[in-house]
């Protein structure tokens, strides 16, 4: 049995169960006419529970209280779309995406334009999420009559990636930032041309994506001997030189050392992508 602790708006309430565990409950009209202290009427099928497990989520809940209900509804529609595309999302997305969309509209109204410099990489690395983001921007335009710039799709995609179960703990923005930086280094120091629609370069980008995710998860590949690294240094010196620049960069910017195995794999992909 859930008791309503606080009505945040007509679509969002804060509830507490008999053990005192607080959660956020989302549902269309669920808060309408309700008061704090009453028991929650029956749980409908389309309602969502979001657990509150740390102070940051509590802060987001506080923020949510100030956001109009229509943003919550919009988020629910976007999440439904995402789940329809096969993504499994952590329920916290309801908090973060709602906050983001509200803020984006607010920024738009205040004329604070923000160029998203990783939009291209987002499109390439996370195309499914990006497509959902594009549809989200359309939905927002229909429902709220606000025209957000097309780049906002990439921002929505960021949030979706971060919420994906299985990608928990991944900071997609930093991942994409690193991919962009490595792409820049590689494209100017080797023959690799990274085009969005090219099959060959998409394999290269996929490698970068996994590399970046490994990097931030602290799970870089190592090996007992440096066989691969030494072989490649002999066979493909140019590719290895290019990969070495990446190593230097990572040392400089992220204060981290890449194992030879990772440099080797990178060089291998560079060699492959530049000869095609």
């Amino acid at each position: 049995m859930q008791i309503i602790k606080k009505v945040l708006n007509s679509s969002v309430v804060l509830v507490e169960d008999e053990r005192g565990v607080e959660r956020v409950l989302l549902g269309k009209g669920i808060g309408f006419g309700q008061k704090a202290g009453t028991a929650l009427p029956s749980t409908a099928a389309d309602q969502v529970f979001v657990a509150l497990d740390d102070s940051d989520h509590r802060n987001l809940v506080e923020l949510l209280a100030q956001i109009p209900a229509e943003y919550v509804e919009l988020t629910r529609a976007i999440v439904a779309d995402a789940e329809g595309s096969g993504l499994e999302l952590d329920p916290h997305i309801y908090l973060t995406l709602t906050d983001h969309l509200h803020f984006a509209v607010d920024r738009q109204r205040r004329g604070l334009f923000v160029a998203n410099r990783l939009a291209w990489e987002m499109r390439t690395v996370y195309p499914t999420e990006h497509a959902i983001g594009v549809r989200a921007v359309d939905r927002l335009r229909e429902r709220l009559e606000v025209e957000l710039p097309a780049e906002e799709a990439a921002n929505v995609a960021f949030h979706l990636v971060n919420a994906e179960v299985g990608k928990v703990g991944i900071d997609s923005q930093r991942v994409v930032q690193l991919i962009a930086q490595v792409t820049q280094i590689v494209s100017h120091t080797s023959g690799v041309r990274v085009n969005r629609d090219d099959l060959h370069s998409s394999r290269f980008v996929a490698h970068l994506q996994y590399f970046a995710e490994r990097f931030f998860a602290g799970k870089l590949l190592t090996s007992e001997d440096d066989f691969l690294f030494r072989s490649l240094s002999e066979r493909y010196p140019a590719a290895v030189a290019s990969a070495e620049r990446v190593r230097t960069f990572v040392r400089h910017e992220y204060d981290a050392d890449l194992p030879n195995e990772e440099v080797a794999f990178l060089a291998l992909h560079i060699a492959r992508a530049s000869s095609e």
Partner: peptide, 9 residues
């Protein structure tokens, strides 16, 4: 970064 809250942006 591994300590980040699950699913949160």
């Amino acid at each position: 970064d591994g300590s980040g809250a699950g699913g949160s942006a």
